[in-house]
Design a protein around this nucleic acid. Structure first.
Lengths: 307, 307
DNA sequence: CTGGCGCCATAAAGAGAACTTATGCATGAA
DNA sequence: TTCATGCATAAGTTCTCTTTATGGCGCCAG
């Protein structure tokens, strides 16, 4: 059954305009439709009500008693609906909820988000560190930032970058074994996040046969920022992205004993539901972050080693 | 405050039901549509708002903040619209505005309307005596009762009856000429409403050659009830419908010296706009009056003379 | 852990409401 | 009278909305 069979909403909207303008043609102009369509809708409503609503007099129409009685409520109702829509639409541009991988949140967004907020002062950002992959059907997120190899189906996916990584550790820890000069030296130290494929990738890149890291189970964090914290605390050597720890390297809190950086097929992606591609706040953030990460990479990313 | 014609009203109604039921399928059932249609409308609304309104979780949906913010206003708005429709529809059954020929109003409705109101106590009748023919485009009438020969185009027309008429006068006036025994005697008296065709019709019926009534311009009323009043006042002889003056005849205030009644092609009609044929109050009155007039005629109408 | 069930999404197709174009008619003004 | 204004009607078109059909996902019971 047609929804408008019960209460003809569109007809009521037309009615409201006609009653205000005292004329079909004028109402039609406001509503952006033809006079004919207005006539049709009014007749429809009159049939529903069972009562004439307007007396058609030359030059203008006159509201009947019934129309006058209905008008205040109808006007008020459409004001409410309008308000609800407007405020919702505004709210939708006001708060941006980002569910980000903890590492990216702590080591990149935390440092760079300020510039986005300066560019878009009207958008309030709510930033959540999430480890579980965001399901837009369950979480009220606008945007998710996640690690992964490739685009996910049914989502708009934008690759922010595949970042260089290399082993890093605290200078103090390096001293305990008299400094680190060869990749094999690392094996004398606790390996943080030993289960990560990047360790194998890195050793392969520097020409060391795949070492057995199965003994290094002590600090097997999944999240890179935890690995980073452990490394900073001198608990071992971790394989970290340069871009996320560039400040720690610059300040000397961490060192990367080998200038041998490499990448793999895991990248950081920005994803959001396809349908919301053009929502202003989403579009604004997407364009900003893609540009900002690219420019950060260009500035700080080390050259990958020659194969 | 102009309401953009892009506000998706039907979607908002669906939204309201979904938010209340916390489920598309349940809302669909209430609205009498399929779950698919609900899904479609919600997506439509979400696109307009630019914001997810419901989180789809297994077994139920959850309103987002945006939805919660919109809900009170939307609910209230639809209450108002509903109220406006209901009260208008009720009002339309509450008051019946009848624009009637003065004669019928005074000499028939005034006597018989009580029985209609007993039958339909919820309908308040507003009865207006109007001489000018009712134009439903200009007057807020529900029903018009008028004299005429035949159906009018574009209107629902119901013939109530073609009534017998004959000359009538007050007994006192008759005495002034020693009683009225032949049709020609009437010409000694002032003729009321001499311009009416019924006089010619009646004289023809009783076999009197069409008399020249052009001298009788004193009481040339158009409305029969005025003619009747003049006749009651003894100002002359009028040609009147039996049905409208049966009580005056019965009480002796008027006499019809000849039992020669006749009719012509002019009748009393009940008319109303075609589109409102089935409006309850109109239907009720129409059926009542047709029946009531018919039964009154059967009871009181004199037999027309043999030609 | 497997199959049934509840609930929502998507695709395709169809119905029918709503809109437009074209035209006519009535009224009041120039 | 003629023109301009404003609404009604008819016919044809557009496109929103709906339904039917199908599939996925998560929960629960056996």
């Amino acid at each position: 059954m047609k929804l408008s069979r019960k209460v003809p909403l569109n007809a009521l909207r037309v009615f409201e305009a006609v009653a205000r303008h005292r004329g079909f043609s004028r109402a039609a102009e406001e509503l952006g439709m033809t006079q004919t369509a207005v006539s049709y809708q009014i007749k429809l409503l009159e049939d529903h009500v069972g009562e004439q609503l307007f007396l058609r007099q030359p030059r203008q129409i006159v509201n009947t008693e019934t129309a006058e009685r209905m008008l205040p409520d109808v006007t008020r109702a459409f004001e409410l609906l309008n308000d609800a829509m407007v405020s919702a639409r505004q709210a939708s541009n006001e708060t941006l909820e980002i569910h980000s991988s903890p590492t990216f949140a702590s080591h990149w967004l935390a440092r760079n988000l300020g510039s986005f907020q300066l560019d878009y002062p009207s958008i309030a950002v709510r930033l959540l560190r999430v480890s579980k992959i965001t399901d837009f059907n369950r979480d009220p997120a606008d945007i998710s930032i996640r690690w992964g190899v490739g685009p996910w189906p049914d989502l708009d996916c934008h690759l922010l970058g595949r970042f260089s990584f290399a082993p890093m550790l605290s200078p103090a820890l390096a001293e305990t074994i008299g400094g680190v000069s060869s990749p094999e030296d690392l094996l004398k130290l606790p390996i943080i996040g030993a289960g990560q494929g990047s360790w194998q990738t890195w050793f392969a890149t520097v020409g060391v046969p795949a070492p057995d890291l199965s003994g290094h189970t002590r600090h097997n964090y999944v999240e890179q920022d935890l690995c980073g914290n452990a490394a900073l605390a001198g608990q071992g050597v971790a394989i970290l992205n340069h871009i996320f720890f560039s400040e720690d390297l610059a300040s000397g809190r961490l060192i990367a004993p080998f200038n041998q950086y490499c990448t793999d097929d895991i990248g950081i992606w920005l994803v959001h539901p396809k349908s919301r591609r053009n929502t202003p706040k989403i579009k604004a953030f997407r364009e900003w972050v893609i540009q900002a990460v690219a420019s950060d990479m260009q500035r700080t990313e080390p050259k990958p080693p020659q194969a």
